[in-house]
Amino acid sequence: MEAAVKEYTYKDFASDQEVRWCPGCDDYVILRSMQKALPEMGVKKEDVVFISGIGCSSRFPYYMDTYGMHGIHGRAPAIATGLKLTNPDLSVWVITGDGDSMAIGGNHFIHVLRRNIDLNIVLFNNEIYGLTKGQFSPTSLVGQKTKSSPYGNTQPPFSAGELALGAHARFFGRISGNTPKEMTQIFIDAEKFKGTSLIEVLQNCPIFNDGAYSKFNDKAVREDRMLFVEHGKPMIFGKERNKGLVLNGLKLEVVTIGENGVTETDILVHDAKEQDPTLHQMLVRMEYPMVTGIIRAFDDVTLEEREDALTAQVKSDSNFKKTDDLFFSGDIYNVF
C-alpha cells in the first residue's frame, strides 16, 4: 500500500531563496497559488518537480522547496518529457512564459501537447519580454510600442489557446493573474487531469506592459467582461448574471437573459470534455467576454500509457531477459 501523504501547508513548499520579482508582479500571485494548491493535490513533496526555461517566470523553481531544474530557453517541455518517461510517478510541472513557450520553444511546446504526456504546464503570458527588459513577444499586439518596436509592433500575435488546441491539447485552462482562488483550484484540477494540462495565466507585468489585461480583469469590470466557464454549467456572466453565450450560425454571440425572449435554458452549457474542439476554439478566440476557467479537458490515452502497454507486451513476448541472451543469440560462432 502507498504510504499516506503527509499533511502539508503552503509553507512546506516555499524554499529559503529570496523571491526577486518586481514588486506588484502577478508572478507572486502564481507562486503563492501554487504553494497553496500543492497541499491539496495529494502528492508527496518529494515527488514534485518543477522544470523551467528562461525568463522571469522561469525563476519559479528556485522559489519552490521541491525538486527543480532551471533549464535553457524554451526547452523545459523536452526536459520534462524525459523526466516523466523515466519516472511516471512524479508530478511534473513546466513553468514557462510567452516568449519561452511560443517563440524560442515553439517546437517543444506544440509537440509536448501533441504527445499528451501527463504533465502540467503553467504559461505566464504577459505579452512582453520582461527579463530582457521590454521587447515585444509572440503574444504582443500589433501596434504595441516596446523597446524593439518603438514605432509599433508589426508582427501579429499568437493566441496561446488557439495554438494549443491546434496542437491537440487535451487540457486547456485560462486564468486571470489577479484571481488567486480560481488559480489555486485550476492548478489542482490540472494535476488531477491525466495528460498534458496547459494553464495560461494572464499575468500582468507592472514594469513593461502594465495594464495589458486591465480592460477586462480590473476588479471594477471583471464580472461584466470575463466569463468563468465550468463544465456542465451554462455559460453565464455579468454582475447581474444575465449575460450568456448562444450559438448563432458558426459564431458565438452574447445575449441578455430576459431580453428578446431569451431565457436561461437558451444559454449554451459548457462541455469541456467534448472531443471535438470546435466550440473550445471559439471560446478561446472571444475577446468579449474574455473566457477563463477550464475550457477544454478531454480525456485521452497518455503517452506513458501507450509506452507502458507496449513495453509490457514486448517484455512478455521476448525471450531476452538479460543482455547476454541477446549477445549470444542468432548468428554466433566459436573459435577454438
Binding site: V49, I51, Y67, M69, G71, I72, R75, A78, I79, A80, T81, G82, L83, K84, L85, T86, N87, L90, N107, H108, H111, E307, T311, V314, K315, D317, S318, F320, K321, T323, L326
Partner: peptide
C-alpha cells in the same frame, strides 16, 4: 524488453534535453 526507453524527439535539441530530464530522474 530490457526496459530501454527511447524518445524520437521533435528535434536534436529535444533529443538531448529529454535525455537531461531522464538523467535528472
Amino acid at each position: 524488453h530490457f526496459g530501454v526507453k527511447t524518445l524520437q524527439a521533435e528535434d536534436e535539441i529535444a533529443g538531448i534535453s529529454s535525455a537531461i530530464g531522464a538523467s535528472f530522474a
